[in-house]
């Protein structure tokens, strides 16, 4: 049992927590509420929102009435899931190698993993256009996945590395000593202990991919648009704010439901691993 943490005195506590709280209130909670309200308003004559106080469920009727939106949602989740899975498969050996390399070299390798962030995201996506174009792969679903995986791989590598680096090598020796071969040692010890890393990495990849619009817009074909493109389109091109807001609310609700579900599953299935993360 850890000793009870000393509580900072009232005034200090306020002074420390008030600024970030105000910031989040002003720039996260209020805009989020505006979007929620906007989802139940009418479109104005020239786009945007109609003057207060008209309220309508038109956006929702439209959204739920057309199967195309459901399709885009399904496709977005599929792309996000596929991207996450590919990222896990690619990142795991890389993270493992970094975690197993000598201490002095690890920092350099981690730096190399995040080095691509030093150049602009759009520049890197344009680079893929140059690469995929001659191969006749541009404007295909494959190109979208390649771009997504490329952009999000570091977000999977880093939490996995942080997790794997903390594994006690004695556990693998113990498993071997007790009769486990290399394959069994991985699946019975390393993998279950790395689940927290896989979960946080997956959250860092899955959620941003769901909302991303640049990669599908630049690398995908007309049939490859995702929710992110749809939302962006409603706000910027069609100026249909209620519909855009309704889509955004749907997306957020889906992500929250998914996060809740995985947290619940994690609680049930990962007993003991909290000692690692």
């Amino acid at each position: 049992m850890s000793a009870p943490r000393t509580q900072p005195a009232g005034l200090t506590k306020w002074a420390v927590t008030l600024p970030p709280t105000l910031f989040l209130l002003a720039f996260f909670l209020v805009p989020a509420l505006i979007v929620v309200v906007a989802g139940f308003r009418e479109t104005g004559e020239f786009g945007g929102l109609a003057p207060w106080p008209q309220v309508s469920l038109d956006a929702w009727r439209f959204l739920l009435g057309d199967v195309i939106y459901l399709e885009v949602f399904a496709r977005s989740f599929l792309v996000a899931a596929l991207t996450t899975l590919i990222c896990i498969v690619l990142a795991y050996p890389l993270a493992w190698l970094i975690a197993r390399s000598p201490k002095q070299r690890r920092d350099v390798l981690v730096l190399l993993v995040i080095l691509p962030f030093a150049s602009n995201f759009l520049v890197r996506i344009y680079a893929w256009i140059m690469l995929l174009g001659p191969a006749n792969l541009l404007y295909t679903p494959l190109a979208v996945i390649v771009g997504m995986v490329y952009a999000h791989l570091p977000f999977m590598v880093l939490p996995l590395y942080t997790n794997l680096e903390k594994h006690d090598p004695a556990l693998l020796e113990a498993a071997q000593d007790l009769g486990a071969n290399a394959w069994t040692r991985f699946w019975r010890v390393t993998f279950p202990l790395s689940l927290p890393g896989i979960f946080s990495g997956s959250a860092l990849v899955f959620i941003p991919v769901l909302g991303m619009f640049a990669a599908p817009e630049l690398l995908g074909g007309t049939g490859d648009i995702l929710i992110g493109n749809l939302i962006k389109e409603q706000f910027l091109d069609n100026r249909d704010w209620p519909l855009g807001s309704a889509l955004a609310i749907m997306l957020t609700a889906c992500v929250l439901a998914l996060a809740g579900l995985s947290a619940w599953a994690a609680k049930r299935g990962m007993h003991g691993t909290e000692a690692i993360t």
């Binding site: 006690d168 004695a170 202990l193 007993h271 003991g272």
Partner: peptide
């Protein structure tokens, strides 16, 4: 033959 390690090396994710 089996070993009892100084750090015990118990598997933290197993009962």
């Amino acid at each position: 033959l089996h070993t009892v390690f100084q750090s015990y090396a118990l598997f933290p994710h197993m009962s």
